[in-house]
Structures are given as C-alpha cells and as structure tokens.
C-alpha cells in the first residue's frame, strides 16, 4: 500500500494542495479529476518530487519518505519507485525510441546493454511500438511519442505509475491509441494515479475516482458514486457545466 499524508503545497500565497491524505491499494487505478488549477498535476509532481511541497510524507514499499526535505538519496529512491508520464511526452529528443526506453535501465538500474535492449523491446512491444524502435521522437506522431513515454516509464517497473494528463496534448484522433494503451496496462495490474479530462475514460478504467477542488479531496469513491451520485455541490456544478457543453445546441 502507498500512503500519502498531509501533503501541503503553495505557490507564494496560493495554496494549491491543502493537506491531502491518500491511501492507494496495490493494483488500484485512481482517477483524479477536478476543475483546472486545483492541484491535480501538482499532486503528481509532488509525489515524484518534481515539486517540493512544504509538508507531507509518503510511505511506499514499507518506507516512509518525507517529501518536504531535500535529501538526495531519498529523492532518488522515491523516483526510482515511481514512474511518470507527462502531458508533453518529454522524450529524449536525441535518442531513438529504443534508446529512450533503455536509458533508465542502463544508467539507473545498471543493466547491461544487451539485457536493457531486450527489456526495452518487450516494453515497446507492450505499447505496440516495437516496429518504430529506431525512430527518433521527431519522426513519431504525438500518440506514438506518448506510447513510447509510457513504455519508458513501465520499463523501470515502478510501484506507482503517475500519468499527468497523458492525452491533453494530443490531436483528438490520436487520443484513442494512448487511452487503449493505458487501459491495457491498467488491466495488467499496475498501480496508477491518472489525472485526466477524459471523463468517460476515467470512469471506464479507474476503480476509484477522486475529485479535487481547492487543494482538497472533495469526492472519493467508485466511479459510479462520484460521477452519478456526487455528494458535494462543487462536483455537481462541475459535471453539469461539463455535460451542458456536450449537449446538442438545439433539439427538435
């Protein structure tokens, strides 16, 4: 189990995360939704220590690591147990798809080139990108880049996979391939935290949904509970606005 306790983060006077407590069971796929600017991405970035929160700690794999302290060793350890998929893919531009996936295996896990290559090819296979292994990111479409990025994160065998709006920067027609990839790895039992605006996808793939507003967890439950019977007015308003936009402009 992964436990996050009392996570607090603010930028200047703007409190983004206001004491988040979160327990994630192994194999859980937790969807995080909420209006923009409520700290969904910041939550993920704090867990991976790409941002330093003012307070908070995480217990992962039986070890408790304070998130607010600068401790190089603990930060590296934490990062090695978590994987991150970014909105903007962030592939290494001067490396091929294969080298992108191999990079962490070779430099961080100190595997031999040969072993790393085999593992990396397996991961590329998993996301359906093995035929593109020799291509550089600039030769790949956004959806393909994101799938390589997912393979890169998976190759490290993370305890927790963090996906930060993985489809927001994609053309609509490329969203499907990435969502399908995420769904297939969710079915394989990876523990995931998924920030996404694709509501129907979150409902389908997550077994638990969290609604964040103003740095607090407002709703927490199964997709049915949160989407169909939200307790808070804030969540109701949010869904109402969201689905109002999707309605046809007029009906006869």
């Amino acid at each position: 189990m992964i436990a996050i306790r009392n996570l607090k983060k603010s930028f200047r006077n703007n409190t983004v995360l206001d004491g988040i407590d979160l327990d994630i069971n192994k194999g859980d796929v937790v969807g995080i939704i909420g209006p923009s600017g409520t700290g969904k991405s910041t939550l993920l970035r704090c867990i991976d220590r790409l941002e330093t929160p003012e307070e908070g700690e995480i217990t992962i794999d039986g070890k408790t690591i304070p998130l607010s302290k600068h401790d190089r060793k603990q930060t590296l350890e934490l990062r090695r147990q978590t994987g991150m998929v970014f909105q903007r893919f962030n592939l290494f531009e001067r490396k091929t798809a294969l080298e992108n996936v191999m990079e962490g295996l070779v430099t961080v896990q100190k595997k031999s080139k040969q072993e790393a290559k085999e593992l990396a090819m397996q991961e590329l296979e998993r996301v359906g990108m093995s035929a593109w292994s020799e291509h550089y990111p600039k030769h790949l479409s956004g959806g393909q880049q994101q799938r390589v990025a997912i393979a890169r994160a998976l190759a490290m065998k993370p305890q927790l996979l963090l996906l930060d709006e993985p489809t927001s920067a994609l053309d609509p027609e490329l969203v499907g391939e990435v969502l399908e990839t995420i769904r297939s790895i969710a079915n394989e039992g990876f523990t995931m935290l998924l920030v996404s605006h694709e509501m129907s996808f979150v409902r389908n793939v997550a077994n638990r949904v969290i609604f964040l507003d103003n740095g607090k967890i407002v709703e927490d439950g199964t997709p049915e509970e949160v989407f169909e019977h939200p307790k808070s007015q804030r969540a109701k308003d949010f869904f109402a606005k969201m689905y109002l936009m999707k309605q046809p402009e007029y009906t006869i």
Binding site: R79, R80, M84, F92, V108, A153, M156
Partner: peptide, 8 residues
C-alpha cells in the same frame, strides 16, 4: 524532468 523522474 523526465530524466529526473526515472531516477537519474
């Protein structure tokens, strides 16, 4: 960030 995230 991607490189830090994989623990380099």
């Amino acid at each position: 960030e991607a490189a830090s995230a994989i623990g380099m």
